[in-house]
């Protein structure tokens, strides 16, 4: 256990479980900066941390729930969204944040992802995308770019990956953005915006995985991936989500792609209550 350097002054420390530091993430892992952005976003958005609940699934990113000093739930693989749905409906005052990985949210939890977006559940999803399954040792998943190597695609990935922002936008999300962990300022601002916006918000965060994905794809150090983000990323706010697919060496389009208004599940539920009362009379 390490002691905080500046007790009470540093936003990050006051929202972390310091008795669990240092964390389990590898050298150069991109999840840490994303967690940092999330904690600073809580500060900058002025939200009451007591009313924020964080729900995670399984995987490297899923471990975030254990490191933040909030009501935090580390659930089963892929099921963070339905768990959070119950939590949100049980107490609509809670601000729900789902912090999990691409394998958890898009593969095993893919069905819950599209349905939560369809319902426009009032929650913010921070999806750490490192293009592979880190916790289990670097296997390919539905976000692994074509031709990329992984421990289960030793001859290169032959399956086409999801364009995640396109998937989520098509399913009905009202806020969709993508950043890399190099874009820390934008990411923090984007998380704050998403958390204060009603409806289903989704932020894809590209993060280096030097130990596994990077090592197998000519980026053995976190810095290599960060440099590739620096060279390849293009900020295009308002870009059509269908044009933002990622391949293994082309440009990475980042920015805020969708920011629209649509009634949330809760708005619709209140209408239903009126209808139910009407019918009873």
């Amino acid at each position: 256990m390490t002691t905080p350097l500046t007790v009470g002054e540093n936003t990050v420390d006051s929202l972390l479980r310091l008795d669990r530091m240092p964390h389990i993430w590898c050298q150069g892992c991109g999840i840490g900066p994303a967690v940092g952005c999330f904690t600073r976003a809580i500060e900058s958005s002025g939200l009451d941390p007591d009313k924020i609940a964080l729900v995670s699934g399984i995987g490297c990113a899923g471990r975030a729930a254990g490191y933040v000093k909030l009501d935090s739930f580390h659930t089963t693989h892929g099921r963070a969204l339905p768990f959070a749905t119950g939590l949100k409906l049980g107490n609509p005052e809670l601000n729900l944040v789902i912090f999990s990985g691409d394998g958890d949210l898009v593969a095993i939890g893919g069905n819950h992802l599209i349905h939560s977006a369809r319902r426009n559940m009032d929650m913010t999803v921070i999806c750490i995308n490192n293009f592979n399954y880190g916790m289990t040792g670097g296997q390919a998943g539905p976000t692994t770019p074509l031709d990329a190597r992984s421990t289960t695609t030793p001859y290169g990935n032959f399956e086409y990956p999801f364009n995640v922002p396109y998937l989520v936008a098509a399913s009905g999300a009202t806020y969709v953005a993508r950043w890399t962990v190099l874009h820390v300022r934008q990411l923090e601002w984007s998380i704050a915006e998403a958390m204060t916006k009603p409806g289903f918000s989704f932020i894809e965060v590209l993060a280096p995985c030097p130990t596994l994905y990077g090592r197998m794809n000519k980026e053995p150090k976190g810095l290599d991936t960060m440099h590739s983000y620096q060279e390849r990323s293009v900020v295009r706010d308002g870009a059509d989500p269908k044009d933002v697919a990622i391949d293994s060496d082309g440009p990475i389009v980042v920015g805020k792609f969708v920011d629209i208004e649509r009634p949330t599940f809760w708005d619709q539920w209140k209408l239903l209550l009126d209808r139910a009362r009407e019918k009873k009379k």
Partner: peptide, 8 residues
């Protein structure tokens, strides 16, 4: 450096 650090 503070906000980029993966280790807080």
């Amino acid at each position: 450096c503070d906000i980029l650090c993966p280790e807080f």
